[in-house]
Amino acid sequence: MERYFESNYKKLGIVTINKDNQETINGPQYKPYIKIIYVPAGYSLTIDFKHYTTKKSSLFCIHPNQHLHLEQAGKASGYCMYYNRDFYCVQIHDEEVACDGLLFNNIYEIPVTELPSVDDPFISQAFQYIMEELASQESSREEMVRTYLKQIIIRTTRAWKKQQLSHLSTTPAQDLEFFRTFSRLVEIHFREKHSVTDYADLLAVAPKTLSKKFNRLRLTQPNDIIKDRILLEAKRLLAYSSMSIKEVAYNLGYDDPAYFNRLFTSKLGTTPAVFRKQFMQTEEA
């Protein structure tokens, strides 16, 4: 079952996920949209190059530039909600939900949140309420749907922080915000800004101060975070585009393809050419 709302470039829809239609979710029609996927236990899916099997109800937040493949649906039905930025943009509404750099665009590349037992019934019901609103003809349905969407995002953001950043529970709020801001800046600028100094300048701190802050918070070092984001995009382009390796290097801001080759090989243990060949062989198998 699918229901959607569309008006003045704004679009949001929900598809019920089950074993009968699991391949539909992988179709190109949903690729351009932001997706929030709620699935009970027993689902298997791959996002970019990481595989997940849900052991309990989980929520996945997926940006359009991420690659989703639902491999196996569980016994119980789930939901795939998709929408565009015209309907709701987390960057514009960041003060409301504070999820950019956490649920979306987080430096750990963790798109999944296992839902606590206290939140699972609420979030599952919120999806059902959205389905009901989309089926109605009420003039206020757009705002009601947006309200439920924000509630889902806020609850999931809180759960994600407890699961992934529990060691920061006693950290001052400004330090957590600093981490989130760095995440967002890397996502915006990784193609043209490759050094810790570049991001230290954007944050108006010294490079050593930036590294010390991440050390104090026991986070991955900034240089590794920057390089990991660049290489994730490199893998996406090698796997899902027809760009040559030189074109991938130029797309990621490297004028010297040989340097890009060395960086890719040293970090991932294989050359770009071998990575592409192995990925293609896996897809064909």
Rank of each mutant, 00 (worst) to 15 (best):
K19L: 03
K19V: 00
N21G: 05
N21M: 07
N21L: 04
E23T: 06
T24G: 00
G27W: 01
P28L: 01
Y30S: 05
K31R: 13
Y33I: 04
I34N: 06
I37Y: 03
V39M: 06
V39I: 14
V39W: 01
P40W: 03
Y43H: 02
S44C: 01
L45Y: 03
D48G: 08
F49K: 06
F49Q: 08
H51K: 09
Y52E: 00
Y52A: 03
T53N: 06
K55H: 10
S57P: 07
L59N: 01
L59Q: 00
F60G: 04
I62Y: 01
H63T: 13
N65C: 04
L68Q: 02
H69T: 08
H69K: 12
L70K: 00
E71G: 01
A73L: 09
A73D: 02
G74Y: 00
A76F: 07
A76K: 14
C80I: 05
C80Q: 15
M81R: 02
M81N: 00
Y83C: 08
Y83E: 09
N84G: 07
D86C: 02
F87Y: 14
F87L: 04
Q91D: 11
I92S: 07
H93V: 00
H93M: 07
D94C: 03
V97I: 13
A98V: 07
C99Q: 04
C99V: 15
D100M: 11
D100E: 12
D100C: 08
D100L: 13
G101C: 04
G101H: 03
L103A: 08
F104I: 06
N105A: 11
N105R: 14
N106H: 07
N106Y: 08
N106L: 07
Y108E: 12
Y108H: 09
E109F: 15
E109W: 02
I110H: 10
I110Q: 15
P111Q: 07
P111T: 08
T113V: 15
T113M: 03
E114S: 10
E114P: 00
L115G: 05
L115Y: 05
P116N: 10
P116K: 06
S117G: 08
V118T: 11
D119Y: 13
D120N: 10
D120E: 15
P121Q: 08
F122L: 15
I123N: 11
S124D: 06
S124N: 13
Q125D: 09
A126W: 06
A126K: 14
A126R: 14
F127W: 04
Q128I: 03
Q128W: 02
Q128N: 09
I130G: 05
I130C: 01
M131L: 15
M131H: 10
M131C: 12
E133L: 15
E133R: 11
E133V: 10
A135K: 15
S136P: 14
S136R: 12
Q137N: 15
R141F: 11
E142D: 04
E142Q: 13
E143Q: 13
M144I: 13
V145K: 04
T147K: 10
T147L: 11
T147N: 11
L149Q: 09
K150Q: 15
Q151W: 10
I152W: 05
I152V: 13
I154F: 11
I154L: 12
T156F: 08
T156D: 02
T156E: 09
R158Y: 13
R158D: 12
R158V: 12
W160S: 06
W160H: 14
W160V: 02
Q163L: 10
